[in-house]
Design a protein around this nucleic acid. Sequence first.
RNA 1: GCCGGAGUGGCGGAAUUGGCAGACGCGCGGGACUUAAAAUCCCGUGGGAGCGAUCUCGUGCCGGUUCGAUCCCGGUCUCCGGCACCA
Length: 805
Amino acid sequence: MKYDFAAIEPKWQKKWEEAKVYAAEDGSDKPKFYGLIEFPYPSGQGLHVGHPRPFTAMDIVTRKKRMDGYNVLFPIGFDAFGLPTENYAIKNHIHPAIVTKQNIANFTRQLKMLGYGFDWDRCVDTTDPNYYKWTQWIFLQLYKNGLAYKTTMPVNWCTSCKCVLANEEVVEGVCERCGSPVIRKEKSQWMLKITAYAQRLIDDLDDVDFIERVKIQQRNWIGRSTGAEVTFKATTGDDIVVYTTRPDTLFGATYMVLSPEHALIKQWQPQLKNWDDVTAYQKMAASKSDLERTDLNKDKTGVKLDGVAAINPVNGREIPIFISDYVLSSYGTGAIMAVPAHDDRDWEFAKKFGCEITEVVSGGEDVQKAAFTAKDETGILVNSSFLDGLTVKDAIPVITKWLEEKGIGHAQVNYKLRDWVFSRQRYWGEPIPMVWCDKCGWQPLPESELPLLLPEVESYEPTDDGESPLSKMTDWVQTTCPCCGGPARRETDTMPQWAGSSWYFLRYMDPHNNEALASPEALQYWSPVDWYNGGMEHTTLHLLYSRFWHKFLYDIGVVPTKEPYQKRTSHGMILGEGGEKMSKSRGNVVNPDDIVTAYGADTLRLYVMFIGDFEQAAIWSDNAVKGCKRFLDKVWNLAESCSDSLAYTKANEPGIHKCIKKVADDIEGMKFNTAIAAMMTLVNDMTQNGCSKGDMKSLITMLSPFAPHIAEELWEMLGFSGEGFVCQQRWPEYDASKTVASEISMAVQVNGKVRATITVPADADQAAIVAAAQADPKVQKFSAGMQLVKTIVVPGRLVNLIVKP
RNA sequence: GCCGGAGUGGCGGAAUUGGCAGACGCGCGGGACUUAAAAUCCCGUGGGAGCGAUCUCGUGCCGGUUCGAUCCCGGUCUCCGGCACCA
């Protein structure tokens, strides 16, 4: 018989489904294991070969856990709200809900075709009202706890999507999704106070097992810095508070800079002699796009405030005040003390505007030529009165204490993280369950009215005026105030796509619950997610957002753990044959359907795991896929030709035991490529040595997490199906003593160069090994007439003989 | 600029508490089977020298430590990713 994957694969998929072999059991006595993958966005293009890489990896991990006796939860769902579906719906005049349904059906077909051990009964869809009811419920809890607020501020506006973007969605000044320029637009937006959790989002990383680069990226994004807030007096008598990380350089502050949006500027209008210049500059700064404003190559610009100055509180000197867009209104206090001698940006500005540059930290080059910014022990304070002679590190606490005693400053921590802009002016998202009443202000919808359904509209087109399509639905918008019963208006913006994905892993624990997002028992049993694998691109988006929501849910007693995910790993991208990203426009997209048709799902699964280091990017190769198919053919042929004995073949036994351990360790360490290589080596050896049914039994069991269909078929073919499915068997027993051969081969070096290989009994002592090495003719050739000075023996590996003439 | 990661055959990649560099796979060369091709099987496959046994060079580059370095240390170059006027 031939290996007929096209018949085998659907056969076993059906049998697994009927027997519900992958169903997770609530509250089982077995230890639980919750393995999670990032649920896909069901795009119209269907599954991409990038998907099977992380999916197969976690499928292998969870299958192995089942074989180790765990009660496994390995769920799947769809993150189905989002712009591509909405845009497709607009273009083709189909309701997004219909498009979503079709796409989910196609994704489901493809995922089932690949034989993943998902518990399909727990499948979730973020666009299902029974699901987004709870997304809305969480929003209401955030609102009730003061963590959701509406404010008018300049926000990132994507000119193409016609929609507001979160800080995290803007990459190098353009829209993360479509690449169009992002401009700043003044808009009233719902915000989530993620900044209230900044410190905990950093601190709690210490307690979880995330790969280091994820932790580093999150810490950098949150951007904690320590320093001091210092109050300067203006000549008008007003206080100007600045934030600095270098209070030690206070004596070197020779001017101040306010951001163009700073509130004091308006207040000073009567005193300012160049008011027109000031307002012109403010206007210019406000009109700049993000890209222009953050361009580091451009010259520093600014305007000196004519008529108002500040007093440096440490030395009483009067210093000028400027406004400039290199100071951001949204960080710190929106005002800085400028120390041009010890800050590159201030130095550049000072040179252009002719400000004084005073050295207060010695140890660098001439500060008139470049700023000296070192913060280590190389710098010693000078020109700084009582700080003179101290290092930077020692001076900071001294000056901070001094500021506190004088009541003009205090230690301060700041974060780069900003609050999360949560409104989107689009149709295909969760309605925000809030109502505006002219009398009562913003009112939350009563929880009993959830879900607030997304209404049917005539057109989903986004509008140029920045209003959501929902705003045109007058009968939906007009409502009554939940507080006073008077006329009121609904919020017409929707939630961002990141809302539904911020808590979906909780819904999997109890997906059909109508009373709560999940029952306390289910949450208690399954939390936290034991292992979550996903893309690095979500590190400062989904991963950060969902940690924030989870911490909030913990605080209000809904979930039992501080952190949602115990372990986080990440996979590399799969690139097209030229090493470029796969994309429709490049025409290098590989469709999993084609590979499955040509070679079968097991080959595809094996290939995406064998392709290279799981964490690194990998280049797709049609040719290399064939190698995996050949391997499965060899396994098939081996099964057909094996002997009937149920015992291990003597010659194969050590190799089988080594492989059992190697594959188990490699799965745990996500080194799937070397796990497969080990099985290939074993199969090659078994082909050489001949093999028994007993050998095959272990091989098939080890292979089953990787290539589950062929494993089931061979299991049945060899007559093991009476013991149940192979995917329900225990992992083969490993016996270290069986891996030890009676004789071992060792390399012999003379002066560090390999000259020979000797075979010695495994239990030979050092003297015997050295004697055997010296007896080797090749070794004698290189050591003849020389004196043995030293011998190094590394047991089981090599002997090094050091000789001298 | 700051913070990460990576440089190993024709290619994807193995091997690090410092111990035989190139596992496994692809590709390629030769052979078997075939009328032929595909598939399959066998042999070979880092560079250089030699008929050969062998010798020699070799993990981006330069140095160091060591009996021994892809691995550790110092320096340097290149590529990739993230952040970026965050005071």
